[in-house]
């Protein structure tokens, strides 16, 4: 699998996600935001975490209008895979590739800690190495991760089964107490209509080595490689 990790001014998790992809067996190219195309044969485009453009205007708003995003839109429209993590999720929402928007955390604090997620389905390119309903232990680090969508959009996302992950407790129970940031329906990640674009706030790429506390994040990258 050929993965392209796109770097915007202010991206800072590009190295982490590249490492996770390489560990799973992908070949990784880094692509600059001002480029107008992805490398030929790219299977997966990745928008990494960070603070693109210093979160100016709205998180992800300026990166979403970068030249390379037209190439990412065409890549997605052709049914190829796109993964956005944290700021990458914000960019995907701002670019219209995913519905909704990530607003300031309900508690106003920047939250940086471990967090369990419930895997909602395991029949997608991103989750086939997980079990449905499995609770995975990953990390969150964001100030604007509060997923909001209007009622109709939310009903559509839920009705289509497009929620990828929900904030949960260690047993996989989705409760208000397990919701760190106020996201509607505890939503931590969503898919596009065709399930080839995934955006999520948490960082699976940071839990891929026992040395740093866990390996529950590996499943996502291994799923992609099995695609």
């Amino acid at each position: 699998m050929k993965a392209a990790v796109i770097i915007f001014p202010g991206s800072n998790r590009d190295g982490d996600v590249a490492q996770a992809l390489v560990q799973a067996g992908a070949s990784v190219t880094k692509v600059w935001h001002a480029d107008s195309s992805l490398p030929a044969g790219t299977d997966l485009a990745v928008l990494p975490g960070g603070f693109s453009y210093g979160d100016y205007l709205r998180c992800g708003a300026i990166a979403a209008r970068a030249p390379v995003m037209d190439a990412v839109r065409s890549h997605a429209a052709a049914g190829r895979l796109v993964l956005g993590i944290c700021n990458g999720f914000q960019i995907l929402c701002e670019s219209g590739l995913l519905p909704g928007v990530l607003m300031r955390n309900a508690g106003l604090n920047f939250i940086c800690r471990r967090q369990f997620l419930r895997v909602e389905r395991n029949d997608t390119a991103f989750t086939r190495r997980y079990a449905q309903g499995q609770a995975i232990d990953v990390a969150i680090a964001h100030g604007e991760g509060n997923f909001v969508a209007d009622e109709r959009t939310l009903a559509q996302i839920e009705g289509d089964g497009r929620v990828a992950f929900r904030y949960a407790d260690r047993a996989g129970a989705v409760t208000p107490q397990a919701n760190p940031n106020g996201s509607l329906n505890n939503i931590a990640g969503v898919y596009s209509e065709k399930f080839n674009v995934l955006g999520l706030m948490p960082h699976p790429e940071n839990l891929i080595d026992d040395l740093v506390g866990g390996t529950d994040g590996r499943g996502l990258f291994e799923s992609l490689l099995a695609a």
Binding site: L57, R58, A61, I62, R65, E94, G100, V101, M103, V148, A149, D150
Partner: peptide, 9 residues
């Protein structure tokens, strides 16, 4: 429409 506002919210 294109940048200054996110018309979702």
């Amino acid at each position: 429409e294109k940048l200054l506002a996110n018309t979702v919210i």
